[in-house]
Design a protein around this nucleic acid. Structure first.
Lengths: 211, 211
DNA sequence: GTCTATATCGCGATAGAC
DNA sequence: GTCTATCGCGATATAGAC
């Protein structure tokens, strides 16, 4: 019983730290988001914080992981069966596209997270960055499922069938990621609308009322 | 006379430092590219190095600036008149596209630079990052000229005329940038081919031999 | 298990001697 | 133009208090 209570307290603290870290990133920016600042914000010493997360990088990775989880749930609830179940079988392609754009739209409300993601996705170029494994798995997982959706979209005539599904998915991924630093420099940029425009390009050409 | 010699020596030293910095980034990665390491590589003390560049960030910005200059020259020599002259008037659209892809192809040979660029383009999200102004100007300049080229490409029937040139340019920019972190994680990825595929999508639809 | 205090080490940067 | 010395700050390992 007491073990459970202690455990529960630890979980709660972890989440308090995650939330405080995100706050600090959002307020002071990634560069000034030191372990000290975050520890202060949550009322802990730096060492106390590192009792819950082995390193600063692991803390930040955990934030992104939590975000992915929440986004995954959006796909789940949009379509019935699961993103998390690893095959995305129950999600209809239109719903998946719509949800993807909704996630991008939501991103525009959380610049701190966007900055954190952009930062880490660049940092993991380093072969022994602690978050590298996470990014590799995340990319592999997300792209594999997205390819299934895109293929289905092509079968159903929603997307042009002459394009490589893997190419489409990679392009959506790279485009969405690449827009983020540009948006951080220019908040006027509407990332979701921009990607939506690209998706229009993927739709089959109408019978051409040419002449 | 002696003033001139000293100046030339200073210039040479600056370039030696730039080159050493790039080496260190390429070899040890951006994270370990400390001022100390770079200073060692060029046979200087950290303070001695900072005589030439006021800060680490300025040094890295200078590297990217030098790269941009070289890339700009590629556009110049590809088309006659100048990228640098600010209007790109003399460059033919096909040549510009070809040169753009050549730059991407070249990037695959310099992962250190690519990592540095990805890193900095994320860092400048911070409103008072020293390289922020550089990135803002660079984006503004490059996109303005690229819009001219794309517009001309549309007038000449090379690209679909129903797409917003500014959207095309932004997409090319974001796509090229977004592919870079993905490529750093997966060297199999052919960035130039990938973007080339997108450019295919921009070409006018043929008269549709539909039925 | 939770947390603080302390210590270490590497970093970028500055001041001032040469 | 370049060094040495030094500062302040960052992350984090360790010891041990509760």
């Amino acid at each position: 019983m007491s073990g459970r209570a202690v455990y529960a307290k630890g979980i709660a603290k972890r989440e308090a730290i995650l939330s405080a870290a995100l706050d600090v990133v959002a307020t002071h920016g990634y560069r000034r988001a030191s372990v000290r600042e975050i520890a202060d914000a949550v009322g802990l010493s730096p060492a106390g914080l590192l009792h819950y997360f082995d390193s600063k990088e692991e803390l930040f990775t955990a934030i992104l992981r939590a975000r992915d989880e929440r986004d995954g749930l959006m796909f789940d609830s949009a379509g019935g069966r699961s993103f998390t179940a690893d095959d995305g079988a129950g999600v209809r392609p239109e719903k998946a596209i719509e949800t993807f754009l909704a996630v991008l739209r939501h991103n525009a409300a959380v610049p701190g997270l966007v900055q954190l993601y952009a930062q880490l996705s660049a940092e993991v170029a380093d072969p022994d960055h602690p978050a590298r494994a996470y990014f590799l798995e995340r990319t592999e997982h997300a792209e594999r499922i997205a390819v299934l959706w895109v293929s289905r979209a092509q079968e159903e005539g929603l997307f042009r069938a002459d394009l490589d599904p893997a190419w489409i998915v990679r392009t959506l991924h790279a485009l969405a990621d690449g827009l983020q630093p540009l948006w951080l420099l220019d908040p006027e940029l509407d990332m979701a609308a921009h990607v939506g425009q690209f998706i229009e390009l993927l739709k089959p050409v109408p019978p051409a009322p040419e002449r």
